[in-house]
Simulated scan of single mutants.
Amino acid sequence: MTAQTPTTTDVTGGEPAAREPGVRQLPARFRDVVAAEWIKHRSLRSTWIAYGATALAVVGVNAGTAYDTYSHWTERTSRDRASFIADGIPLQEAFTANGALLMALALGAIGAVVIVGEFSTGSVRTTFAAVPDRRAVMAAKAVVVAVVTTLFGVVVSGVSFAVTQAILERRDAGVFLGEPGALRVVLASALLAPVCALAGLALGAVVRHTAATLIITVVVVLVLPLFLTDGRRWSAVAGHTLPYKAWLRLVDIHYAPPAYPWSTGGAWTVYAVWACAAVVLAVVGVHRRDQ
């Protein structure tokens, strides 16, 4: 009888791993990798605490703005009240700029922690040992993050709209979802969440240090939009490439073209490009860096 000798199989980005004699290692199916990443994502209590705290904070900020309007409504003249509705201010209070910045920062951090946490604890080695195809792992993480944060954005944006308009309606100043531009405000605010979360995931996959990743996220989401203004052409064009600036354009229903205007189609394109580029950077970056 001829003795069987152990065989090996190459592990992408690592050393060849020993394999049991006669056992053929099958590549993991992508749906199984996605399922595994979903289990990891939902099993972290801190993740859901972060989601819950962010949701409460964002809805609270928006509702607080609407309540401030409600409480001081009687101090307005009849002309001011009419202008408030005619100028589309109820839709601005449905999801405020402060609420959008807060959600963008929080979701960027959550997206980064999804991968940085595994690198910092070393558990990513176990993940890559189980699934040597790093690109499949990162693609699965991106799918889970995109789906969960999109649902999160839809819920937060929808609840915020309902709560703020219910408060304003007590002064006959609220609007309904069928109002022109209302659905765009809700959708743009909802999709800001997955765009920022995927950007955070990509930064975390490349940088791999929690503090550095969070600093870069703050710079991209908060500092650059404040630094880049519409006063100069180069500054306006650069600002038009940022997700937060795109959100501002999409929720501006009564858009008054500035010196360097842009379209809602351009703003939606910025959303799509950032999401797709983030996924590509996360998938390709991890694969190439560990070779």
Rank of each mutant, 00 (worst) to 15 (best):
A50H: 03
A202F: 04
A63Q: 06
W274D: 00
V114Q: 09
A129H: 10
A82R: 13
R125C: 01
R249T: 03
V34D: 06
V144Y: 01
V283M: 07
A94V: 10
S189R: 01
L183E: 09
A166P: 02
P90E: 05
G153Y: 03
R81F: 05
R79G: 11
P16D: 14
P257R: 09
H72F: 10
A212V: 14
M1S: 14
P27I: 03
T9S: 11
P257H: 09
R125A: 13
F30W: 15
L44S: 09
T2L: 13
P258H: 08
D230L: 10
A140G: 10
W247Q: 05
A50K: 02
T149E: 06
I85A: 06
A246N: 02
G285W: 08
A142I: 01
V207C: 04
V131T: 15
V124F: 06
F227N: 08
S78P: 05
D230I: 05
A63G: 08
A193M: 10
R79Q: 15
L26H: 12
L201Y: 00
A130V: 09
T5E: 15
I39P: 00
D10G: 07
G200T: 08
I49S: 07
K40N: 11
A146R: 00
A236K: 07
V273T: 06
V124I: 15
V144C: 03
R208C: 04
T7P: 03
L226V: 12
S83Y: 09
T241V: 12
G158Y: 04
L222M: 15
T65N: 09
R135P: 05
Q4C: 02
V147G: 02
K245I: 02
A112D: 07
T150A: 09
T150F: 05
A35V: 11
I49N: 04
T217H: 07
V148M: 09
A104F: 08
V144S: 01
A146M: 11
V58K: 00
A211K: 04
G239K: 04
A173S: 07
